[in-house]
Design a protein around this nucleic acid. Structure first.
Lengths: 346, 346
DNA sequence: TTGTACGCGTTATCAG
DNA sequence: CTGATAACGCGTACAA
């Protein structure tokens, strides 16, 4: 549902301000035609200097601003709007992503329409529909589910779409990802190389793309080392620190408990650390490896290595891909799949 | 254009869907007039059920979406867009603020146009101008400077404006603030009550509203206790953790060094902690008090009390104030000044 | 160099 | 209950 202005008979505009000045008002004030005003504002080519000045004076005097919406309804005109749909704008990781996207988009003269899907596929669907209805020139989406029907090319009106941070199986469109599998693989391999054989895994539900991939890297590293993954040590479904904390508390009670923990994201790492602190586990009794860096990670009272990556760069890249499609630079190119590398940071 | 091939009878769009379907296309497909389509989409009052069905079928078949921009250029129509300008969307504090605003706005059927000013007044000015040109119905701004000319009522075209987190002197408009002064006062008073007399202050530049207010609360608490503030212990101008770290390192070298530190925001707290850890200051030799909570603050290896507040609630409140103005609920009311309380959390 | 005519997609108004 | 008409603010195409 779109417009739900339940206003029965909402009062007309306050009397304080009539209507915004239009190009006609400026023309009248400057003693020229609307067309001349348009020309001046569009670059001022082929207009006599004195008229340019008259127009600019009138613009300043009236406080005139072009109506971008009216301009954009004309054929071939763009809105300069990019829809950005994020699962949780308050998550520091996605906040960085948003910042990176903003940098690039603003530099290209674009503005962002931002929506928070809250990891809810239905809400995402509504947002996509709404943004397309607002004539966005492009879309950057962190998809919250595995369903793609609302993101098919026809459903988005053919506007360029870039998926960020997560992919959707079977949806052929530009995508930027962290190399989750390789990152988790390397991190786990490090733990194994250090001699750990009982490594717990704490992460989010498998239906989330990155979660699945990280568990995949974790598993592959075990396979490569010829070691099994003990299902009793794998805890998935934690979406916030407290759930992770509880999961870790359980893991400490398992027979033959783990000597190391791989946590799939920073929120899980935080929960794990809380549990360990709460149970007064000695620092030398638990080795930690966590995906995503976070502030003060260097102050954790346990040996912790972080699988780091640059969310801001991810946002920048996603934005560059949209802009490339809009500039025709990527015309005819098949959908791009970019994977950004991770690094291990102690 | 020649009067010949005006495709009145033929449908120029049906050949290629190079352009998005319009209300005319739907009307043609459903065998009704555009007006009937508009009526159906607007609620379907006073339309024969069979026609409603025909229209809805056509809409589904063509994948039609209303062009919101075209709709909003008509007089009295709103865009449903709220401009949100934030100094740094990647800062967890403002990310929370954004989330809170989104919650309320989305619930009211509004969408957010988000801009990052980067603490740059010029950039803020550009964003405001652009957003107003895009016909936003309202504005929520975290102002980055003390200059207000671009935010005057006339300059924003009479659009409801709410300042969040910071105020601008002399600008009479709705404002939501954290009660910085009271928070800093209470926090400092606690330190003084514990017997500290040499309390350092680490914070941002004074030109930032909240910074000034927090230093103010700090100072007043000293005055109330009849104690002086030693200028040698006050370090301002730190905008990031590393600058705060360096400031704290210097403070440790001052003759008669502080026994407690008041840090003005979480980034400064982080820097302070880093410096203390780096210098191996014993935990019982430094008492910390910091504005803004942050993740893992409970894991800091020093006695730390946090002056906490709810940025998300701040965002919600700001959004509610804009919506109230738009609904006419606040008609005629003087500009509101809301202060949200802080709490001390150990 | 400047102005006129027209159409973009939508809906309020009013006639039927 | 339905549709033709006009108008919103702007810019392209063309005329002057």
């Amino acid at each position: 549902m779109g417009a739900m202005d339940n206003g029965e008979m909402s009062n007309p505009r306050s009397v304080q301000r009539a209507t915004a000045p239009t190009i006609h008002d400026v023309a009248a004030a400057a003693g020229v035609s609307p067309m001349t005003v348009s020309r001046v504002l569009g670059g001022g080519k082929n207009v006599r200097p004195e008229k340019i000045r008259a127009v600019l004076d009138a613009v300043a005097a009236l406080g005139y601003r072009k109506n971008e919406n009216a301009r954009s309804i004309r054929p071939g005109q763009r809105t300069g709007l990019i829809g950005v749909i994020i699962t949780n704008v308050a998550n520091p990781y996605y906040a960085q992503l948003q910042l990176g996207a903003e940098e690039v988009l603003a530099g290209g003269g674009f503005r962002m329409l931002v929506g928070n899907s809250g990891e809810d596929a239905d809400r995402e669907r509504v947002l996509v529909h709404d943004f397309v209805g607002r004539q966005v020139d492009g879309l950057i989406v962190v998809p919250s589910g595995t369903v793609s029907d609302h993101l098919e090319t026809e459903r988005v009106g053919g506007v360029p779409l870039v998926l960020a941070s997560r992919r959707i199986e079977g949806l052929a469109t530009d995508t930027v990802l962290i190399d989750d599998v390789a990152g988790a693989f390397e991190g786990t391999r490090r733990l194994l190389a250090e001699g750990h054989t009982r490594i717990a895994y704490v992460g989010n539900i498998k239906s989330i793309f990155t979660s699945r991939r990280r568990l995949d890297g974790f598993t592959r590293a075990h396979l490569t080392a010829g070691l099994p993954v003990d299902p009793a040590l794998v805890r998935v479904g934690q979406n916030d620190p407290d759930a992770a904390r509880r999961a870790m508390l359980e893991l400490l009670e398992v027979p033959d408990p783990p000597t190391a923990v791989f946590s799939e994201n920073n929120r899980n790492t935080v929960g794990v650390v809380r549990a360990l602190t709460e149970k007064r586990v000695p620092a030398d009794r638990m080795r930690l490896m966590g995906f995503d860096d976070f502030e003060l990670s260097d102050m954790i009272p346990f040996p912790l290595t972080v699988i780091d990556h640059d969310a801001r760069e991810l946002g920048r890249t996603a934005a560059q891909m949209v802009v490339a499609r809009l500039n025709g630079v990527a015309d005819g190119l098949a959908p791009q799949q970019v994977q950004l590398p991770t690094t291990l940071a102690d």
